[in-house]
Structure formats: structure tokens, C-alpha cells
């Protein structure tokens, strides 16, 4: 039975008058690649920061590797890799110097791997960070997070600035890293196709809590779209349970439902004298439906 690498229990965080996290619960089992989605301001970054001890929650408990996130030991920090949205400071350093400098703090820093990755991703070790493009800086940040072989990898919008080649390469590495069942990853991104590719579980945050969680295939089974084409004018509401969202226009309707068996859906055909089809949704559609 796999244990949890990180656990958040009833986390609350408020910035002035605005509540961002409202009693959020989340656990990250070992060997999981968790794809984190949410609208802008939904609290994804806040969640990550609370989880990593970068932000103190107003209430609740966050643990990483069994330790209180706010008081992480050196040993625990050695096992965490984090790629923030924007890499902090050090702009005056050269890329190679930066990696060496950061690497000096880690016991298991794989310098060779770092420089190999830099070479593969076309980053010159002698180039100053201040002269790099955003994409290059992001690559460097990713390299920094990967090469000390962490047990928990957290990526906060890591691929936004990457070119397609680097993005593909990065995702390939993530997939490879995800094969290790002792390692967990949290991958926060708006690019649903990336998450579909790498994430073993999807978590959608909405209004400061986890709105939806599950494996992609499970989510696709749970959330489905029903298209109804009737001979007569349809009147809302459509008689089906667990509607997430519905649009009724004349004799047609489009209804997104959660956890409704096929039989119940198909029975709509008889009830409404209509032709009913069930559509599977991709992750982006699911995200859209949840956030409507």
C-alpha cells in the first residue's frame, strides 16, 4: 500500500479579505503524478506554497514526508524539487555558476546530468541568466529542480515559456520520472493536453477546495456530455440527476452530468421522445464543464 508523500488537511488561507483556500484537503500518494488544474486565482500556487512551507496556512495542517511543511528539515528539503512560475533572483549569475552554486547545497546533486541537460536544451553554461529569454530561464529552473533526484517534484506552470521541442523533451522526462513509484510529482498547468499525457491523477481546484479528483479515465467515465435531439420543444430542466451544466435550445439540449449510469441516460430518450447520444470529454472539456 502506497503512503502519502504530502498531505494537506483542512487548509485555509486568506489574503486580506479574500479567501483563497477554504478547507482544502489533498493527499499525494507516492508514485503519483498529480495534475493540478484550476482557473486563475483558484489557489493552485497558494496550495503549492502551503504544501512546501513557503506560505503559512491560516488553519489546517500540511505535511511533506511526514514532517510539518512549515518546519521542514534539511533532509526533507533535500528531497524536494520545485519549479516556480518565475525563477527567483540570481539574474547576475551565469547558468553554469548558478547550477553549481545551488548544487553546492544538495548532497545528491548530479552535476553531470545538469550540464548534459543544459547542453541538450541549448543553454550555454557561460551565459548570464539576465541575458536569457524567459524560456531559457524556465529550462534552467527545471534543470535545477530535477538533478538532485528529488522524491517530490512540484512544477508550477513549468512549460508556459518553453518552445514545443523543449516542452516535448521536458514532458518525456516527466513521464520517465513518473515511472519511479517512490517519486511523486505535482504538475500544475493550464495546458490540458500536457496533463493528459503525464498525469496519473487529475485534481481540479475550484473556489478554494478540490472540486474534482481522479484518474483521467475515471473522470472521463464519470463526467459525460449528453446530446439530446427531440422532435418537440424541450423545456428545462432536463430530467436527469447530477447535472453539472445544461444548455437547452429549442428541440436540442446539451447536458453535462456526473456519475449517472448509462441506463438512466438512455432512458431520457423515451422520456423526451428524443435521440440521445453520450459523448466522452477530454480533460479540457471536463475542466471547462467543472468551471462553468
Amino acid at each position: 500500500m502506497s503512503h502519502n508523500i504530502a498531505e494537506l488537511t483542512n487548509i485555509r488561507k486568506r489574503f486580506n479579505v479574500r479567501s483563497v483556500l477554504m478547507g482544502l484537503n489533498l493527499n499525494v500518494p507516492a508514485g503519483t503524478v498529480l495534475g493540478l488544474m484550476g482557473r486563475n486565482g483558484a489557489g493552485k500556487s497558494t496550495l503549492i506554497k502551503c504544501m512546501l512551507g513557503l506560505l503559512k496556512p491560516d488553519a489546517g495542517k500540511a505535511t511533506v514526508f511526514g514532517e510539518d511543511a512549515w518546519n521542514l528539515s534539511m533532509a526533507a528539503k533535500q528531497r524536494i524539487g520545485f519549479v516556480p512560475q518565475t525563477m527567483p533572483g540570481f539574474r547576475w549569475m551565469k547558468a553554469g555558476t548558478f547550477l553549481d552554486y545551488i548544487g553546492s547545497y544538495y548532497q545528491r546533486w548530479n552535476r553531470e546530468k545538469a550540464f548534459t541537460m543544459m547542453k541538450e536544451w541549448g543553454i550555454s553554461a557561460g551565459m548570464r541568466i539576465s541575458r536569457m529569454s524567459e524560456g531559457e530561464i524556465q529550462k534552467l529552473s527545471i534543470i535545477r529542480a530535477l538533478v538532485h533526484e528529488p522524491g517530490l517534484l512540484v512544477f508550477d506552470e513549468p512549460v508556459a515559456s518553453l518552445d514545443p521541442l523543449a516542452r516535448r523533451d521536458f514532458l518525456r522526462q516527466i513521464v520517465e520520472l513518473g515511472m519511479d513509484e517512490t517519486r511523486s510529482m505535482i504538475f500544475c498547468s493550464h495546458i490540458a493536453s500536457d496533463l493528459e499525457r503525464v498525469a496519473s491523477e487529475i485534481v481540479i481546484i475550484k473556489d478554494g477546495v478540490v472540486a474534482l479528483r481522479g484518474e483521467l479515465s475515471t473522470l472521463q467515465e464519470r463526467i459525460r456530455r449528453i446530446r439530446i435531439q427531440s422532435n418537440r420543444i424541450l423545456c428545462p430542466p432536463i430530467p436527469v440527476r447530477n447535472i453539472i451544466h445544461s444548455v437547452v435550445e429549442g428541440s436540442t439540449a446539451e447536458v453535462t452530468v456526473e456519475d449517472v449510469p448509462d441506463e438512466e441516460i438512455m432512458s431520457l430518450g423515451e422520456k423526451l421522445s428524443a435521440r440521445v447520444t453520450i459523448e466522452s470529454l477530454n480533460l479540457e472539456d471536463i475542466f471547462m464543464e467543472v468551471n462553468r
Binding site: K49, G53, L72, Q78, F82, P88, I102, Y105
Partner: peptide, 16 residues
């Protein structure tokens, strides 16, 4: 601190 709060995660950085 100027280097950003993310450096908190670098083991020993703050202590240093």
C-alpha cells in the same frame, strides 16, 4: 530574502 522565497526550499540556504 531578495533571491525569492523559493530559495527557502534550498536546504541550508537560509541558515547559511
Amino acid at each position: 530574502l531578495k533571491e525569492g522565497e523559493e530559495t527557502d526550499l534550498v536546504p541550508g540556504y537560509r541558515a547559511y
